[in-house]
Design a protein around this nucleic acid. Structure first.
Lengths: 245, 245
DNA sequence: GGCTCATGTAAAAGCCGTTCACATGAGCTG
DNA sequence: CAGCTCATGTGAACGGCTTTTACATGAGCC
């Protein structure tokens, strides 16, 4: 390992770490100008190499984009996994934390999110990419599975896969429409996080899950799910949408 | 009006209808290759003019894209309006029809949808575009308003704006993730339409709206909303997700 | 020390967006 | 109908991007 040339102000003929440098440069460029505006040549320039050099590491511009998306899905999976925390302290709380993690990722990693969901690259054309995407979705799926198992007795048990797809679509919808770029400037009555939280809570209630602790004004809904379902999930009094002033 | 030259096989120096021809050409190209892949030069070629000609009608490529998005929002609004049909025959049925119209538009007008939601053009930078987008959203908003007014007594009335945003995010999420391009090839347990319908129904139920006619197994939920809320909205027996086999 | 191969470069071809000076001819004006 | 004018289209040119090709460099290995 002789590449302490990184420390040298001027690098020699060989870069020594070009692949990684290109990925980082691209990440920055995408965050700035979007996947559409990002150019291969710019990334090369930023890394201080000629325009042809990147082709030693990526077949073409799309493969660089795919690599970033791939990395993005991996980080995404990691963050969802951490948020889920295997359902602690209780399933509903953890479930909502996953939703917030989705939004947080979209907000905090705009470049990854862009490459993953907005770059228009064909995810299913790349098996590795598709697998990474699937692994991320499986976190939501697993969480939904656990949640479905807690469905109140007496009601038909919702299919976990469907729940997972529903939650995914809500998260993705809110993130795409309200939590990114220009769309974020739309004047909303509440933050994207609050919006999604309320949406998920209402949805879960629609499935029969008790989602708050206020004595419900309408019907007898015993809390039959033993240590669960009565969580610190922070539902404000007045329902999932604050006070109806 | 002297432009019956359209009938002439060869047009003369002047096209006579270039602006419209360019819009149509672009629409076709975007449907084929996405807004990112669409090129100004290609549209010109397809219209049979030089590469510089389009600049007599659009400031640049982005303005052409904006024009298409604008037209898209107008058609979108028209379709949502028709689907809503002023809440006939009943609010819930009409509401769900709006959701399906959202998906149908995404499916049947991929070029418009792409320009509107996936091209990455700054909607709020163009006042006309933003206004058109707002008008489309206002259909959903109006529908939510009507729906909110029907909230069962005894429950806190949900803010209509929030409901509208929720429905929008669900529709957009399902359309983006499952109803377009490659993502549509994901293996789903149900069609995007069914997925969205179930999602909306569960959500509405979470708000306290009675969404089907089966004698509920759990609580006394009188149908207090006079001629409404018990609609032909086609909820299959077994809840919004078919039979839990 | 010398070989070799991964890694980088320069140059070139082909495309695109955009601009500019110039051409054309449709419609008005008299 | 003659002639003018201005919207609309053309061709050439500039710079930038992607990608390929032939060639240069030097790091690691014998």
């Amino acid at each position: 390992m002789s590449w302490r040339k990184e420390r040298r102000a001027e690098r020699g003929y060989h870069h020594g770490n070009l692949k990684e440098a290109l990925l980082q440069a691209a990440l920055g460029l995408i965050a700035e100008k979007g996947a559409a505006g990002f150019t291969f040549a710019d990334a090369a320039r930023m890394a201080g190499v000629s325009a042809a050099a990147p082709y030693r590491h990526f077949r073409d511009r799309d493969e660089l984009l795919s690599s970033i998306a791939q990395r993005g899905f991996e980080q995404f999976e990691a963050r969802l996994t951490a948020a889920w925390d295997d359902g602690r302290p209780d399933t509903v709380t953890a479930f909502e934390r996953v939703g917030r993690a989705y939004l947080a990722f979209a907000r905090e990693e705009p470049a990854f999110y862009n490459a993953m969901f907005e770059s228009g690259l064909p995810v299913d054309a790349n098996p590795a990419l598709q697998a990474a995407s699937e692994r991320a979705f499986n976190i939501i799926r697993a969480a939904a599975e656990r949640l479905a198992a807690l469905a109140p007795p007496g009601t038909p048990r919702p299919p976990a896969m469907m729940m997972a797809l529903h939650i995914w679509s809500m998260s993705h919808g809110v993130a795409s429409l309200f939590s990114r770029g220009d769309a974020a400037r739309r004047k909303l009555p509440m933050s994207p996080d609050e919006l999604l939280e309320a949406e998920v809570l209402i949805y879960l209630r629609g499935l029969g899950f008790p989602t708050d602790r206020r004595p419900a004004a309408k019907s007898a809904e015993p809390p039959p799910v033993p240590p669960e379902a009565s969580s610190g999930s922070g539902v404000p009094p007045g329902g999932p949408w604050g006070k109806p002033k």
